[in-house]
Design a binder for these strands. Structure first.
Lengths: 135, 135
DNA sequence: AGTCTAAACGTAACACTATTACGTCAATAC
DNA sequence: GTATTGACGTAATAGTGTTACGTTTAGACT
């Protein structure tokens, strides 16, 4: 498996991040656990602890509507605007993008309400181009 | 409990919708189940089936990031643009709003990708005005 | 009425997702 | 060298959601 080393990552964090990067798409915590059993993982908490840190570092995103996690699509990630996700309900493909303009409009609303925004979740469900093109 | 009758709702659906309306905020499916035990509810599926229909009717929204459900804030609901939610992480208050402009920008992106959008999830986490004002 | 069908319902068992609790280990700071 | 901190290992448990199977109810149609 590719290791995707990161200077600041511990061994477990690297393994979890590597499994997500290799998957090229979202995985549930338990799917990651199964993948990493051959690397000595035994319990969900090992995965969740690593995921907590990776999400904190911005290397991994959580997809709330799937209860799954995905590696950030920005190669040298670390520090960019909030992300949004288009999730194909047919093939499961997930496209990450960064709709700064839309997020600014949302922030305008929260500012007007005196709501201090800390995190945005934007997930779009639908059918991707290639699935929609099928007969 | 208020009954919030709705011509098209079955008894179970009315009970579930009533519990959510009375709560004035989000409830998990199991919280609803506990509330409705005194009305004869015995199993989670009774709640989930009713919720499925209520969400389909647009009377109830699912909050993905809370694994919870909330009654739509539009009194005579039924048929309006996609909703967004601002969730206070301190007091739990949820404000629903309808950011048509932001959603249009997201739709512009999906249209450009040939992604046929069917459902949007927008959930904003942060601290509401009254909680942020506290010492 | 009688019967057919579709939707909703009741119940039990199970599967999936996430956390709590408790103890250990290694690195660093004083 | 011991105190603190953060990561780790393991087990048990809590919380969320679904599958499977059978029954009931309400209309539609002879």
């Amino acid at each position: 498996m590719t290791v995707h080393a990161h200077p600041e990552l511990t061994k477990n964090q690297s393994l979890v991040f590597g499994s997500l990067s290799d998957a090229g798409g979202p995985l549930t915590a338990y799917a990651i656990l199964d993948i990493l059993r051959e690397n000595g993982f035994r319990a969900p908490l090992q995965v969740y602890r690593a995921l907590d840190k990776l999400v904190e570092y911005g290397l991994v995103h959580r997809l709330e509507s799937l209860n799954a996690f995905v590696a950030c699509s920005h190669k040298g990630c670390s520090g960019h605007g909030s992300a949004a996700f288009a999730i194909c309900e047919k093939c499961g493909e997930v496209s990450e993008f960064t709709p700064d303009d839309a997020i600014q409009l949302l922030k305008d609303w929260t500012d007007g309400k005196g709501f201090r925004l800390s995190r945005t979740t934007i997930e779009l469900r639908g059918i991707c181009r290639s699935c929609g093109a099928e007969t």
